[in-house]
Design a protein around this nucleic acid. Structure first.
Length: 469
RNA sequence: GCCUCAAUAGCUCAGACGGUUAGAGCGACGGACUGUUAAUCCGCAGGUCGUAGGUUCGAUUCCUACUUGAGGCGCCA
């Protein structure tokens, strides 16, 4: 039976144990400072929170000369000692060690890729298995966790059911981007039919299949029974996108609400985002302070303001009007009917509005087949939420619930009616107006933290020509 | 997919009309000092200048191709 408790750094720093209580803890050395007076200070981290706890190691420890003085960043150690009020500034509590056991040394600290200095994110991506040991990636990871949990929390508290939609899909016609094909064919010996075409009847699923680009269509089926549903999982796009805001594999949150229109949709999106912002501000103040100090000084103030402020709403037509009157020259010419280019979106949310902006009612010709046609015959009930610095973090719409209108759109836009028969069935049997949207988790966390590249928000980024680790 | 830029020490970067021994900061290592906090100060080691060709008496420097990385655009979340 152990006499001591093993606690996390977070618990200890929060004062979970009374002074003088014996304690045991495990973690990794963040830094070590020696005094020739015969005392070393080890900052120990275990990832439970941003800060490390200070370990005081005196030279009377049996392995002081042989081991303690050789500790470098990220050596793993076990400490037994007791918690005491700190004599130094900077922390309330510290641990006086009665024993320190080295669990794992760091080989060749001179070439260790995450040495105790600032590194570029580009370098850290090349050592993605070691980068969680940096303050930057650890903080982003904790915030990603808070944001994810807060999404579930908000939706669950508001009557939504989490639907586990499939990752493998036969629907290749969602128009949301290029797909990764899923097959167990031997690619060197593809079975052919009489016409010489690849015979997918012989493939695992007996048809062509792909990784999903969105759970939306499947979620809509469940929405037409459970009323308020959402998906939250990985999504795949085989676009050869080379930007700071695209990944081939990313996580998306897609709520879908029945008997709801575009305004209900926008309101849900806004409340969901505000809840997530609030949760991060409450649960990760230390991590956010780090981003404010090293990445973008505005990240905390802007989130704080947003929590208490409604997002700006503007129609596409109004946006075009403002762009035309802006007296600014854009690379891409502005006229009603164009798809907004990045420079236009940036101008709208960064310069015109200065905070996240909901743009609604886009021309139907630049949007997906399932979006509900407005009475003007020219626009659809779509919405994008644009965030300064990141661009589109949410895309959504009220869905076309009228069978005839939907069929007409499918034909006009050359979408495969055959593979979508089941989707059309939803309009034939008890259809109802409904709406939903997709939030890119990485873009959301990128906006929250100010970290510019989504490759640094997801643990192991997958992009074109890059799937290491 | 298109365009642009980059590749020199473990990391971040300088550098040279093409010409002996290629520099700095950080990190590592050694020392001084200190209840220290990204400590401070002193010192030491560390390089096939991305790969393959070409031009040249001579290329890390110029040219070409390739590889890798980054950024912008498009597509979107």
């Amino acid at each position: 039976m152990k006499h001591t408790q093993t606690l996390s750094v977070k618990e200890l720093l929060n004062g979970a144990l009374a002074v003088d209580t014996p304690v045991e803890l495990n973690g990794w050395v963040k830094s070590r400072r020696d005094s020739k007076a015969g005392i070393s200070f080890i900052s120990l981290g275990d990832g439970s929170c941003f800060d490390g706890i200070q370990i005081v190691a005196e030279n009377k420890l049996s392995n002081y000369e042989t081991e303690i003085l050789r500790l470098t960043k990220d050596c793993s150690i076990n400490i037994k000692g007791k918690i005491v009020p700190s004599l130094g500034a900077g922390q309330k509590f510290e641990i006086v060690a009665s024993s320190i056991e080295v669990i794992g040394w760091v080989e060749n600290p001179d070439t260790y890729p995450v040495s105790p200095k600032r590194h570029t994110v580009e370098h850290l991506r090349e050592v993605a298995h070691l980068r969680p040991r940096t303050n930057l990636i650890a903080a982003a990871t904790r915030i990603r966790n808070t944001a994810s949990f807060a999404v579930h929390e908000y939706l669950q508290n508001n009557g939504f059911y989490w639907i586990h939609t499939p990752l493998i899909t036969g629907a290749d016609a969602e128009g949301a981007g290029e797909l990764f094909q899923v097959t167990n064919f031997d690619l060197n010996q593809l079975p052919r039919d009489a016409a010489g075409k690849i015979d997918y009847k012989k493939d695992f699923f007996g048809r062509e299949t792909f990784l999903t680009v969105s759970g939306q269509l499947n979620a809509e089926a469940y929405c037409m029974s459970l009323s308020k549903v959402y998906t939250f999982g990985p999504t795949f796009r085989a676009e050869n996108s080379n930007t700071t805001r695209h990944l081939a594999e990313f996580w998306m949150i897609e709520p879908e609400i029945a008997f709801a229109d575009l305004m209900d949709n926008a309101s849900l999106a806004q409340n969901l985002l505000k809840h997530v912002f609030k949760a991060v501000l409450n649960k990760n103040p230390d991590d956010m302070a780090f981003f404010a100090e090293y990445i973008n000084k505005d990240v905390v103030t802007r989130l704080t303001q947003l929590v208490n402020q409604d997002f700006e709403m503007i129609t596409y037509t109004e946006a075009i009007d403002k762009l035309l009157k802006s007296n600014k020259t854009f690379e891409n010419q502005v006229s009603w009917g164009i798809d907004l280019a990045s420079e236009h979106e940036r101008w709208i949310c960064e310069e015109l509005v200065g905070r996240p902006t909901i743009v609604t009612n886009y021309p139907k010709d630049i949007k997906a087949f399932y979006m509900r046609q407005n009475d003007d015959g020219k626009t659809v009930a779509a919405m994008d939420i644009l965030a300064p610095g990141v661009g589109e973090i949410i895309g959504g719409a009220q869905r076309e619930e009228r069978y005839d209108v939907l069929v007409k759109r499918i034909k006009e836009m050359n979408v495969s009616e055959e593979t979508l028969y089941w989707y059309l069935d939803l309009r034939r049997f008890g259809t109802a107006k409904h709406a939903g949207f997709g939030v890119g988790l990485e873009r959301l966390v990128s906006y929250i933290t100010g970290v510019q590249n989504v490759r640094d928000i997801i643990p192991f980024p997958r992009t074109s020509k890059s799937a290491n680790f």
